[in-house]
Design a protein around this nucleic acid. Structure first.
Lengths: 142, 142
DNA sequence: ATATTTATGCAAATCATTTGCATTTAGGGA
DNA sequence: TCCCTAAATGCAAATGATTTGCATAAATAT
């Protein structure tokens, strides 16, 4: 459980408080291997006898995203999900459109960065980020 | 106004009816250069004195997406947008996170297809599609 | 222990989208 | 042209995710 403490530590150092809700949220986030929605997370936490409000989960996730502890993930169903931010960079996903299972995949974003520079120049934009997700059918659903 | 007629024609040929709502929707969709949300589209159509219901817009957009006339576009705000499907392939977008302007950009998806094949093999998935969007600041907002 | 400020809970609002159902209407055929 | 039937529409109300307002609780520095 070292990762949890590391995150809490850095929160504390930045003047944020360590509360029951925050601790439960981060632990729950670390436990999941897939991006989770606020309500999903709230359900899981509730099941583990920790009582925190739905609204707190929404607020906390947004807060954690603001400070970069979690990354927002947007798939095609227009539900906001989050995942613990990796140590560096960001993740890409492979989503089964049938069972909704999400797998993390490695993509060499460096290749995209050239493209981004090009697009930026061509369109007079400063390109800051990209989102790249893959959709298909997992072995089980195919 | 040839494109409109072409689309209506092909709808007719597939046994779908040409209604006032459908015609207005398609014309409105062809008029916009950026992905539009249902409510946005409804507002525009209403402004042009054509009275069609919000619900009809939602239903129609979903229908048009099902038959491939429009493509759903998902950006980071979890609002469902649509755009007229290009003759072949699909579009990618460059979104200004400040003013929300969306520009279409050309991406050689062929490069991604190699990657998709690889990911599919590695994860035992059948990869069907991808979504790749870019975010940044336009010249005006930078 | 106390003050101060951050974080939480509860209720209610909001926003996008969907559903049920009764009514209208496009378009093929008599 | 009129009618028939399925397809499309409109209206009202439901749903689901997310947000907001406000008063309270509780985490830390002093």
């Amino acid at each position: 459980m070292k990762r949890t403490e590391f995150i809490l530590q850095s929160l504390r150092q930045n003047g944020h408080r360590i509360t029951k809700a925050r601790r439960a949220l981060i632990k729950a986030l670390l436990r999941t291997k897939q991006p989770v929605a606020a309500l999903e997370l709230h359900a899981r936490i509730s099941k583990s006898k920790v009582a925190i409000d739905r609204v707190t989960v929404y607020r906390e996730l947004k807060f954690l995203a603001d400070i970069g502890v979690v990354h927002p993930v947007n798939l095609k169903d227009n539900i906001q999900r989050y995942e613990i931010a990796p140590v560096s960079g960001h993740k890409h996903h492979l989503v089964c459109t049938a069972c909704k299972t999400v797998k993390n995949v490695n993509v060499a974003c460096a290749d995209l960065h050239n493209l981004e520079a090009l697009l930026g120049k061509k369109n007079n934009f400063i390109v800051r980020e990209h989102s790249l997700e893959f959709y298909g059918l997992c072995a089980h659903c195919a």
